[in-house]
Protein backbone atom coordinates (compact mmCIF):
# COMPACT_ATOMS: atom_id res chain seq x y z
CA UNK A 1 0.00 0.00 0.00
CA UNK A 2 2.72 2.44 0.92
CA UNK A 3 4.58 1.64 -2.25
CA UNK A 4 1.50 2.30 -4.33
CA UNK A 5 0.82 5.44 -2.37
CA UNK A 6 4.32 6.67 -2.95
CA UNK A 7 3.67 7.30 -6.60
CA UNK A 8 0.64 9.36 -5.70
CA UNK A 9 2.26 11.57 -3.14
CA UNK A 10 3.23 9.70 -0.03
CA UNK A 11 3.76 12.82 2.03
CA UNK A 12 0.23 14.20 1.92
CA UNK A 13 -2.00 11.30 2.87
CA UNK A 14 -5.76 11.71 2.71
CA UNK A 15 -8.04 11.04 5.65
CA UNK A 16 -8.98 7.64 4.29
CA UNK A 17 -5.35 6.64 4.04
CA UNK A 18 -4.67 7.71 7.61
CA UNK A 19 -7.68 5.76 8.77
CA UNK A 20 -6.51 2.77 6.74
CA UNK A 21 -3.12 2.78 8.38
CA UNK A 22 -4.55 3.25 11.87
CA UNK A 23 -7.05 0.43 11.44
CA UNK A 24 -4.28 -1.68 10.00
CA UNK A 25 -2.14 -1.13 13.07
CA UNK A 26 -5.08 -1.96 15.32
CA UNK A 27 -5.78 -5.10 13.32
CA UNK A 28 -2.15 -6.15 13.53
CA UNK A 29 -2.20 -5.58 17.27
CA UNK A 30 -5.33 -7.67 17.66
CA UNK A 31 -3.79 -10.41 15.52
CA UNK A 32 -0.68 -10.43 17.71
CA UNK A 33 -2.88 -10.65 20.78
CA UNK A 34 -4.68 -13.59 19.18
CA UNK A 35 -1.55 -15.65 18.82
CA UNK A 36 0.14 -14.60 22.06
CA UNK A 37 -2.80 -14.65 24.45
CA UNK A 38 -2.67 -17.49 26.92
CA UNK A 39 -6.42 -17.44 27.42
CA UNK A 40 -8.04 -19.45 24.69
CA UNK A 41 -11.37 -17.65 24.58
CA UNK A 42 -9.65 -14.29 24.73
CA UNK A 43 -7.65 -15.35 21.71
CA UNK A 44 -10.86 -16.20 19.88
CA UNK A 45 -12.34 -12.82 20.78
CA UNK A 46 -9.19 -11.01 19.69
CA UNK A 47 -9.60 -12.88 16.44
CA UNK A 48 -13.03 -11.25 16.15
CA UNK A 49 -11.39 -7.86 16.51
CA UNK A 50 -8.73 -8.72 13.92
CA UNK A 51 -11.29 -10.02 11.42
CA UNK A 52 -13.50 -7.01 12.03
CA UNK A 53 -10.49 -4.77 11.42
CA UNK A 54 -9.91 -6.49 8.09
CA UNK A 55 -13.58 -5.90 7.25
CA UNK A 56 -13.14 -2.21 8.02
CA UNK A 57 -10.10 -2.13 5.73
CA UNK A 58 -12.23 -3.59 2.95
CA UNK A 59 -14.83 -0.91 3.62
CA UNK A 60 -12.19 1.80 3.39
CA UNK A 61 -11.20 0.38 0.03
CA UNK A 62 -14.90 0.67 -1.00
CA UNK A 63 -15.26 -3.11 -1.22
CA UNK A 64 -18.48 -3.04 0.72
CA UNK A 65 -19.74 -6.42 -0.37
CA UNK A 66 -16.54 -8.22 0.57
CA UNK A 67 -16.53 -6.41 3.91
CA UNK A 68 -19.99 -7.61 4.88
CA UNK A 69 -19.31 -11.11 3.65
CA UNK A 70 -16.19 -11.06 5.80
CA UNK A 71 -18.28 -10.12 8.83
CA UNK A 72 -21.00 -12.63 8.00
CA UNK A 73 -18.75 -15.60 7.37
CA UNK A 74 -15.81 -15.03 9.66
CA UNK A 75 -17.18 -13.08 12.61
CA UNK A 76 -20.69 -14.46 12.46
CA UNK A 77 -20.01 -18.09 11.70
CA UNK A 78 -16.38 -19.16 11.91
CA UNK A 79 -15.69 -17.55 15.26
CA UNK A 80 -18.99 -18.80 16.60
CA UNK A 81 -17.98 -22.29 15.54
CA UNK A 82 -14.61 -21.73 17.18
CA UNK A 83 -16.22 -20.59 20.43
CA UNK A 84 -18.61 -23.53 20.25
CA UNK A 85 -15.65 -25.84 20.00
CA UNK A 86 -13.85 -24.09 22.85
CA UNK A 87 -16.89 -24.39 25.08
CA UNK A 88 -16.88 -28.13 24.49
CA UNK A 89 -13.31 -28.35 25.74
CA UNK A 90 -12.11 -27.85 29.27
CA UNK A 91 -10.74 -24.39 28.49
CA UNK A 92 -10.51 -22.69 31.89
CA UNK A 93 -11.35 -19.10 32.68
CA UNK A 94 -7.91 -17.57 33.02
CA UNK A 95 -4.63 -18.66 31.43
CA UNK A 96 -4.43 -22.15 30.05
CA UNK A 97 -1.26 -23.81 31.33
CA UNK A 98 -0.75 -25.79 28.13
CA UNK A 99 -1.44 -22.97 25.67
CA UNK A 100 2.20 -22.88 24.63
CA UNK A 101 3.88 -25.67 22.82
CA UNK A 102 7.61 -26.08 22.24
CA UNK A 103 7.13 -25.26 18.61
CA UNK A 104 6.56 -21.56 19.03
CA UNK A 105 9.81 -20.60 17.34
CA UNK A 106 9.12 -22.89 14.42
CA UNK A 107 5.60 -21.49 14.20
CA UNK A 108 6.92 -17.96 14.31
CA UNK A 109 9.34 -18.74 11.51
CA UNK A 110 6.64 -20.29 9.34
CA UNK A 111 4.24 -17.43 10.04
CA UNK A 112 6.88 -14.80 9.31
CA UNK A 113 7.92 -16.56 6.12
CA UNK A 114 4.40 -16.95 4.80
CA UNK A 115 3.54 -13.35 5.71
CA UNK A 116 6.65 -12.14 3.89
CA UNK A 117 5.80 -14.27 0.85
CA UNK A 118 2.22 -12.98 0.75
CA UNK A 119 3.21 -9.37 1.16
CA UNK A 120 5.88 -9.75 -1.50
CA UNK A 121 3.44 -11.37 -3.94
CA UNK A 122 0.77 -8.74 -3.36
CA UNK A 123 3.17 -5.85 -3.58
CA UNK A 124 4.77 -7.29 -6.68
CA UNK A 125 1.43 -7.95 -8.37
CA UNK A 126 -0.35 -4.71 -7.54
CA UNK A 127 2.61 -2.37 -7.39
CA UNK A 128 1.27 0.05 -9.92
CA UNK A 129 -2.44 -0.49 -9.30
CA UNK A 130 -4.26 2.38 -7.70
CA UNK A 131 -7.75 2.21 -6.26
CA UNK A 132 -9.54 5.43 -7.08
CA UNK A 133 -11.65 5.96 -3.96
CA UNK A 134 -13.44 9.02 -5.34
CA UNK A 135 -14.54 7.55 -8.66
CA UNK A 136 -16.96 4.72 -9.34
CA UNK A 137 -17.19 2.12 -6.61
CA UNK A 138 -15.05 -0.83 -7.56
CA UNK A 139 -15.96 -3.25 -4.84
CA UNK A 140 -19.74 -3.13 -4.96
CA UNK A 141 -21.79 -6.29 -5.07
CA UNK A 142 -22.45 -5.80 -8.76
CA UNK A 143 -18.80 -5.43 -9.71
CA UNK A 144 -17.74 -8.30 -7.46
CA UNK A 145 -20.48 -10.55 -8.82
CA UNK A 146 -19.66 -9.74 -12.41
CA UNK A 147 -15.96 -10.41 -12.06
CA UNK A 148 -16.63 -13.53 -9.99
CA UNK A 149 -18.96 -15.09 -12.55
CA UNK A 150 -17.21 -13.81 -15.64
CA UNK A 151 -13.48 -14.14 -14.98
CA UNK A 152 -13.27 -16.35 -11.92
CA UNK A 153 -15.94 -18.96 -12.61
CA UNK A 154 -13.56 -21.90 -12.69
CA UNK A 155 -11.91 -21.23 -9.31
CA UNK A 156 -15.36 -20.52 -7.89
CA UNK A 157 -16.70 -23.85 -9.09
CA UNK A 158 -13.55 -25.65 -8.01
CA UNK A 159 -14.01 -24.17 -4.54
CA UNK A 160 -17.60 -25.31 -4.38
CA UNK A 161 -16.54 -28.83 -5.33
CA UNK A 162 -13.94 -28.68 -2.57
CA UNK A 163 -16.57 -27.58 -0.06
CA UNK A 164 -18.90 -30.33 -1.23
CA UNK A 165 -16.12 -32.86 -0.75
CA UNK A 166 -15.53 -31.51 2.75
CA UNK A 167 -19.23 -31.80 3.51
CA UNK A 168 -19.40 -35.38 2.29
CA UNK A 169 -16.25 -36.17 4.22
CA UNK A 170 -17.76 -34.73 7.39
CA UNK A 171 -20.86 -36.87 6.97
CA UNK A 172 -18.76 -39.97 6.36
CA UNK A 173 -16.63 -39.25 9.42
CA UNK A 174 -19.63 -38.67 11.65
CA UNK A 175 -21.29 -41.89 10.47
CA UNK A 176 -18.17 -43.99 10.79
CA UNK A 177 -18.80 -45.03 14.38
CA UNK A 178 -22.09 -46.69 13.53
CA UNK A 179 -20.58 -48.35 10.46
CA UNK A 180 -17.66 -49.78 12.35
CA UNK A 181 -19.95 -51.19 14.97
CA UNK A 182 -22.15 -52.79 12.36
CA UNK A 183 -19.16 -54.22 10.51
CA UNK A 184 -17.68 -55.54 13.71
CA UNK A 185 -20.91 -57.28 14.61
CA UNK A 186 -21.37 -58.93 11.26
CA UNK A 187 -17.98 -59.79 9.80
CA UNK A 188 -15.01 -59.28 12.06
CA UNK A 189 -15.74 -59.48 15.78
CA UNK A 190 -12.04 -59.58 16.60
CA UNK A 191 -11.40 -56.27 14.85
CA UNK A 192 -14.38 -54.84 16.64
CA UNK A 193 -12.93 -55.85 19.98
CA UNK A 194 -9.67 -54.15 19.17
CA UNK A 195 -11.40 -50.96 18.21
CA UNK A 196 -13.34 -50.84 21.41
Amino acid sequence: MTLAAASHGFLSPTGVEIAFVLVGIATLGAALQTVTSRQLVHAALWLVVALGGVAVEYLLLTAEFIAWVQVLIYVGSVVVLLLFGLMLTKAPIGPSPDADSGNRWAALTVAGASAAALVWVVVDAFRATWIDLDGTVQGSAEVSGRSLFRFWVLPFEALSVLLLAALVGAIVLSRRGGDAKGAAETSAPAAGEERH
Binding site: V48, W68, V69, V71, L72, V75, G76, V79, V80, L83
Partner: peptide, 9 residues
Protein backbone atom coordinates in the same frame (compact mmCIF):
# COMPACT_ATOMS: atom_id res chain seq x y z
CA UNK B 1 -27.64 -10.37 8.22
CA UNK B 2 -23.93 -10.13 9.01
CA UNK B 3 -24.41 -7.68 11.82
CA UNK B 4 -27.36 -9.53 13.31
CA UNK B 5 -25.18 -12.61 13.47
CA UNK B 6 -22.59 -10.66 15.45
CA UNK B 7 -25.18 -9.94 18.15
CA UNK B 8 -25.20 -13.59 19.11
CA UNK B 9 -21.54 -13.27 19.98
Amino acid sequence: LAVMGVGVL
